[in-house]
Structure formats: structure tokens, C-alpha cells
Simulated assay, not measured.
Amino acid sequence: MGAVPSNTAPFGVVVNPRSALGRGARSAKKVLRALERASIPARVITGRDAIHCQQRVREECQTGELRGLILIGGDGLIGLVIQVPEARDLPIGIVPAGSGNDFASQFALSHHPARAIARILAAEPRPQRVDLGVVSLPNGRTHWFAGALNVGFDAAINRRANAIGLPLGPLRYQLGLLAELTVLKSRRFTISGDAGERTFSGLLATVMNTRAVGGGIPLAPRASVTDGELNLVEVTHAGKLRVLSVLGRLARGTHESLPEVTITKVRHIRIEADAEIAYSDGEPVGTGPFEVHIAPGALTLLA
């Protein structure tokens, strides 16, 4: 891939075609105006659906003509784009415009398009190197994640939130939580690797790269995306009355001292959870066992 002069090469502006019922498309117009004012060319990349959008990202990145990508959307769009190896090779900026923006919140990125573009351009000379997570599935597929790999209760909440087709932002996850509480159950997890080996009955065994999931729930309050480690968060079984207290502490990020909660720094772990479907960056990944490891500094972030 040949180098392109940074002052003349365009940014690829990736717009989530499903972002919060059109919020991404509206933000894209403002982003393009901000780039035009800065005399920076841009190519809009989108698609009929998520798969087509990902295909278009791959095609544009393979031309070798882009200076970087600007993603207009939420965690789902980030998760979509980082599956493309050629996209991971480019600097990436983010304009938050999704229902869940937990990765963007890790860096306090502005939702205001003009301010977001100003920060992206200011960071171009000195981008950040950011860790990503990688999960290998039994079918041989490898999936990359920016925020978290959710297994158990939080994944079930994510599934319910995705089924709500309204632009409610984090409220979708709160409604999903209430619905999932009505059928609360424990899952059986087997953990091995850096976190030791054990089997337990509980609510979740989630691997965090960022601090928050579900539109702002600080599941791993001390997580860093630059330390070369992931955070395994385990919540063991609790009765319905007790679980309400535990969940309330989780929502406030004050749960680290609870006896039901364990947070362990890991670089590689294996999670077995029967037929549980894992979610990653807001989207379904598949069933396990899940082999998870950290990819230090795998993403070049303009932030």
C-alpha cells in the first residue's frame, strides 16, 4: 500500500445506515460541512445494511487512498468496522451518534459534530494507540471488540434492548434490564486461563476493555484501554431481592467490594457458558466456548 500525502488524501466518513433512526445521517451532514471548512476532502461510506456497509468499508480501505476513517455512529458501528483488517490499519476518529456510545465515552468524545471533527484533526499528528479485545469462536471465526464481550445477564439485556426499535438511547438498556429481571436465572460458567480455573453459578462473566457497557453502566470502573490488559467481571448467584441491590451498585460503579463481584485483570482467558449467546459492542457474536485475548495497541485512535 503506497503512502498518500496527508494534506491531500481524503477521510473515509463511515455512516451507520441504522444509527438511532437517522441520527447518524443527520450528523454526517454536519461532519462533511466541518471537513469542507477545513479544506479536507471526504468520501462518504455507507450501505443498505450493516453487511453492505462493512463491505464498502473494506473496498474503500483497500484502495490505499484514505488518510483515515471517521465513524459516525455508536458502539455497533465501531464493532462493525474493526472486523475489517484494512480498516484497523488506518487511523480512526469517532463522532458519537448511536444509541450506545460507551467506547466514545471512555475518551469523553463530543457528540457535537464540529467539535468532534476539531478534536480528530488536532489529534492527527499524535494519535493514541488503543487496545482491542479478540475472541475466537468454536467455528474458527475471530471477532474483534472495542468495548466488551458480554456473556450472561448483560448479554440478555443487550438482546432485549436491540429488539426495541425506538431511538431511546440508554433507556433501551434500562427497559431491557427490567424485562430480563422478570425471568432472572443463574448461568453456569467455567473459567480458565489467566484468571485461574473454576466453575461457578452466577449472572455474568463479561470481559471488559472499556469501563462501561449498556449506555453507561460502569461494569469495570478501573478499566484502561492502554494498559495491555482486559478486565474479567464475574457476578455470582444472588436471590431476586439481593440482585436488585447488586445491580443498583453496578449501575453506580460502587460494586467492586461486593462479595458477589470479582474483577480480575487478564490477558487471555477461556469462558464456557453452555449455549449462552455472547454480545460484543452491542451486537450478537455467537456461542462458546470463548477464547479471549488482548491485542495491545491494535487501534490507532484520533482522540
Results as ranks from 00 to 15, higher is better:
I40V: 12
R43H: 10
I40H: 07
G74N: 01
I82Q: 04
D49Q: 04
L66F: 10
A97C: 01
G22E: 01
A87T: 07
R56P: 05
P91E: 01
V95C: 02
E59S: 10
V81S: 08
R56T: 11
I51Y: 07
I78K: 05
A50F: 00
G98E: 03
R33W: 06
P91I: 02
I45C: 02
E65I: 05
I40E: 06
A38R: 14
T46F: 06
G76H: 08
Q54C: 09
T46C: 00
I94W: 02
G22Y: 00
G64S: 08
R88D: 04
P96A: 06
K29T: 14
K30I: 11
I51K: 15
Q54G: 15
I94R: 00
A97W: 03
R37V: 03
A20Q: 08
V44D: 00
T46Y: 07
R48I: 12
L21H: 14
P85I: 09
I40T: 10
G24Y: 06
V31C: 03
E60V: 13
H52C: 08
I51D: 15
R33H: 09
C53G: 11
R88C: 12
L90V: 08
A34Q: 04
V44S: 04
R88G: 02
A38G: 04
V57K: 10
A28C: 15
R67D: 07
S39T: 08
H52A: 14
L90H: 07
R48C: 02
P41G: 08
E86A: 15
G64D: 05
I40K: 01
G79T: 05
E86R: 06
S39R: 13
I94G: 03
R37S: 11
Q62R: 15
P41R: 07
I40P: 04
K30W: 03
H52G: 12
P41Q: 06
G93K: 07
D49N: 15
I82E: 00
G98W: 05
D49W: 10
Q83P: 00
L32K: 05
I94C: 07
P85C: 03
L77K: 03
R43E: 11
I82V: 15
K29Y: 09
I51A: 15
V84I: 15
Q83I: 03
L66I: 11
S27D: 12
